[in-house]
Nucleic acid binder design. Structure first.
Lengths: 238, 238
DNA sequence: CCAAAAGTGTTCAGCTTACACCCATGA
DNA sequence: TCATGGGTGTAAGCTGAACACTTTTGG
């Protein structure tokens, strides 16, 4: 059987089955004003026009799921090389009242200071505090909850926190971020001790004085060293 | 806008986009001869006829993703109420050379002694040792690897192991299972201590003498007690 | 000089790990 | 009676949690 015949046979076989719209929805996290937020927008199209929803779009025939997620993220934020991970697929029949749509959710971690806020606002998106965006369409609230659960699990065992901060950050900043993620206070001595003991931060000889008179030393996550440690069996743990 | 008009508008809006075949593939784990295995079959249809693959099928228009996974599992095994969890969705464009197909993978944990082996064999399926089934079609090897990773993470923090054993089992049996899952030996005193300290096993006054002359006491996982503990903030941990 | 945030060590409890011997029984 | 797998306790080291004071400096 040559390739063309092969394709024909396949199409005949496959054509007994239904094809379905596949969407990607993104839970886009950002750390703003010492709070963990996600980007949402008000739908200007049916179904559920006027309601709030996550940022999403349909998967095109010439792109993979990951590509679709990157495209949707890029269109809204203009950012590339952002932390992006697939989360879960939602497939209830009536989840979208308009049509049968399966949605694959992704969550992203943005450095908000890289963001062109005008560009984002032009798309009608806005930052919503975690825990204050409970009125999303369809099953989007489930998606947010699952994303939060995943983020909390991952942030403990992988160096994800850094994705939400500027490349140079202070340890108190990182601690405040973790407190926002886990919604609880950490002891600053223990936090610092454990963090620095992992030896994956490079201390810079510059201080950030924006939040105190004394100033706090800036650090940078050393990804290369982290990767070297990984190969030796080291595990990130905060 | 009434409901019919609404639907028409939606269809017009959605119809700009592509619909895609959506499949479900299952990684079905079983514990047999003290080894962790998965069910695979030899494809008797194109593409990749004659090659080994996971058990899968297409999602129908009248069923959710979860329903499709249950159906596929039921058709092969005749079993219901089996542990089944969605794993990951695979969406590379050329992953299935026949057509554009997105696959949502699920992993299942079977009690093999509940299984009608003739029924399974009639479908051409067979048990394959983990680590000896590296020659699967498409991205099925990736799926197996991801399933194993998930199983290993979950089995430590959730009472999953019991899903792979008979309702009544001995502690040495459970330990051998965990050793098969993690591919390493555990200290039997520590294993037993930690396990029993969680207080979720009910000790029966019967011994299983199938593996030793002395016999080992049978236990049963007490799901109700476990759930009560869960609500009190208890966490399973082995 | 004072308010406000940054930075620093020690102690204790609980958990994890390592480790070796007796028990029960069928053959 | 002996070979085989089942069952048990303890000590040492490590890790996580709790806890309070000094330092720096801009205003």
């Amino acid at each position: 059987m040559n390739s063309t015949e092969q394709k024909k046979t396949n199409q005949k076989y496959y054509s007994k089955f239904t094809r379905i719209y596949v969407a990607v929805d993104c839970i886009i996290f950002g750390f703003l004003n010492n709070e963990l937020k996600i980007l949402i927008l008000t739908r200007d199209f049916e179904p559920a026009m006027g309601k709030s929803s996550l940022i999403g779009g349909f998967v095109r025939k010439d792109e993979s799921l990951d590509d679709a997620a990157e495209r949707i993220l890029y269109d809204l934020t203009g950012l590339e090389n952002v932390f992006l991970e697939q989360l879960y697929s939602y497939g209830k029949i009536e989840r979208d009242p308009g049509e049968r749509v399966i949605s694959v959710s992704y969550y992203a971690l943005l450095k908000v200071q890289d963001l062109d806020h005008d560009h984002v606002e032009k798309h009608g998106a806005r930052w919503c505090n975690i825990g204050e965006c409970n009125e999303l369409v369809f099953d989007h609230n489930d998606m947010v909850e699952r994303a939060l659960t995943r983020l909390r699990r991952r942030a403990k065992n992988q160096p994800l926190g850094f994705e939400l901060l500027p490349r140079k950050f202070t340890i108190p900043q990182l601690q405040v971020l973790y407190e926002a993620i886990y919604q609880k206070k950490f002891d600053n001595r223990n936090f610092r001790k454990k963090l620095l003991a992992m030896n994956v931060l490079e201390k810079l000889e510059i201080k950030d004085k924006s939040t105190s008179k004394k100033g706090a030393y800036l650090y940078r996550f050393d990804k290369k060293r982290y990767n070297r440690f990984l190969e030796e069996g080291f595990l990130f743990d905060l």
